[in-house]
Amino acid sequence: MKYDYTMHRTDAFPDIYGNGECPERILEEISRNRLPHGHVITFANEKGGVGKTTMAFQAGVALASRGLRVLAVDLDARQRSLSRTLEARHATAHCLNAKLPAIRSIRIDNTSTAMLQQEIARLGTEIDVVIIDVAGRDCPQARRAIALADSLVTPISASHYDLDALGHFDPVTHELREPSAFARTVLALRAEQLARGLRQAEWVVARNRVRSVDSAQMERIGAGLLQLSESYNLRIAEGLSERVAYRGLLQFGLTMADIPLIPQLRKHARKGRQEIDRVLATFDLPEPPETATPHRSETAPARRAPVLNRTRDNYVRAVLETLCPTRVEA
């Protein structure tokens, strides 16, 4: 039995800010501004520490590798995790003189909700995919990022609290009692979109950072997710595994898919399908043109200071210590 979205059209957004914030107002405001060009993927969950930024970054790199033009939007003005990761990526490409799939990016610090659409419209005229990384809290910008999404990704890990962030369950019967605050936000916006005859986002909950020791816990979480899937009309996908290399490479702005593109690291590349592809495969993403090539970052401009060989060697060594520490010579 599918969830009745209409019951949330008016009660999901109490007037916290004293400005009449509600789904009707959000959709009306969005309709008055230019819609983003390209497919919008929003990574959102009001619970922190679930890997939203990691997945957003991995998705951006994977899509850019296919030849799609990607714009990454960082809405977390306080943490700036996605922005800092992309800055590290530019630094790595410069230091190692590597041509990596490039991602255009912007960080929106202004609290004006209209700024979100204006900046995306300004930078995204020739963009195929817009990736939005939302801060782990409820705010007007987060609501609009969800409303703008063609695809909504909500990562969770093997935790009762992660499941509780989506729906509240009876501890004895394990039956779904009611949606969480975050789920009510999504359901209310989807209800308003349905009432207006607008396309609803594909909502995917990705089980992220799963370790082998979490298998029993994930079995219990999986039963709850199945109820959410049937009730909220969402999909369940396998996200990223918990691997030290994944986390370690983020400080350099790299993914495992980048390693074969870096001459100094090529011999340490590992074959196999990238895990993020499993999530992206669930979305109706645009196909790159037949003539498209991966958008590589430019090599260092002449105006930038050259990188010393010793500096480059130390940088490579630091990456290798993260990628495969047992192979780094003393």
Results as ranks from 00 to 15, higher is better:
residue 7 M to A: 15
residue 114 A to E: 14
residue 146 I to H: 01
residue 88 A to W: 04
residue 40 V to G: 06
residue 38 G to N: 06
residue 2 K to G: 06
residue 281 A to C: 04
residue 323 L to D: 03
residue 30 I to H: 02
residue 122 R to Y: 09
residue 121 A to Y: 10
residue 122 R to S: 14
residue 219 E to C: 04
residue 167 G to V: 04
residue 197 G to V: 09
residue 70 V to A: 08
residue 109 D to N: 12
residue 199 R to H: 04
residue 263 P to W: 12
residue 9 R to T: 13
residue 81 S to M: 01
residue 188 A to K: 07
residue 233 N to E: 08
residue 249 L to K: 13
residue 101 P to N: 05
residue 94 H to W: 15
residue 94 H to L: 13
residue 272 G to T: 06
residue 228 L to P: 02
residue 93 A to G: 08
residue 217 Q to D: 02
residue 162 D to K: 02
residue 12 A to F: 05
residue 131 I to V: 12
residue 106 I to N: 02
residue 278 R to F: 09
residue 272 G to L: 08
residue 5 Y to N: 12
residue 254 L to A: 07
residue 52 K to H: 03
residue 131 I to Y: 01
residue 93 A to K: 02
residue 199 R to A: 06
residue 229 S to P: 00
residue 153 V to Y: 01
residue 179 P to L: 07
residue 44 A to G: 13
residue 35 L to G: 04
residue 175 E to I: 03
residue 124 G to E: 00
residue 208 N to S: 00
residue 143 R to Q: 09
residue 12 A to M: 06
residue 154 T to R: 01
residue 305 A to Y: 03
residue 184 R to Y: 04
residue 40 V to P: 00
residue 156 I to C: 03
residue 156 I to F: 00
residue 141 Q to A: 12
residue 164 D to I: 01
residue 234 L to R: 05
residue 206 A to Q: 06
residue 236 I to P: 02
residue 168 H to W: 12
residue 181 A to E: 14
residue 68 L to C: 12
residue 13 F to R: 10
residue 301 P to N: 07
residue 240 L to P: 05
residue 241 S to T: 10
residue 220 R to S: 12
residue 171 P to Q: 02
residue 244 V to Y: 00
residue 299 T to H: 03
residue 62 A to I: 06
residue 302 A to T: 13
residue 117 Q to H: 11
residue 182 F to N: 08
residue 310 R to Y: 03
residue 244 V to W: 03
residue 277 D to K: 08
residue 258 D to K: 07
residue 95 C to E: 07
residue 49 G to D: 05
residue 118 Q to S: 11
residue 153 V to C: 01
residue 190 R to Q: 15
residue 213 V to Y: 00
residue 173 T to P: 04
residue 324 C to V: 11
residue 221 I to W: 00
residue 75 L to C: 13
residue 78 R to D: 13
residue 324 C to E: 13
residue 293 T to P: 01
residue 185 T to A: 04
residue 23 P to V: 09
residue 218 M to F: 01
residue 314 N to I: 06
residue 215 S to F: 07
residue 56 A to F: 05
residue 165 A to L: 04
residue 292 A to N: 10
residue 59 A to K: 04
residue 176 L to F: 09
residue 225 L to Q: 09
residue 328 V to L: 13
residue 168 H to C: 09
residue 12 A to N: 06
residue 238 E to Q: 15
residue 200 Q to L: 13
residue 218 M to R: 02
residue 15 D to T: 03
residue 56 A to R: 03
residue 294 P to C: 02
residue 118 Q to A: 11
residue 71 L to D: 10
residue 273 R to E: 05
residue 277 D to Q: 14
residue 265 L to A: 08
residue 28 E to Y: 04
residue 204 V to C: 11
residue 36 P to T: 01
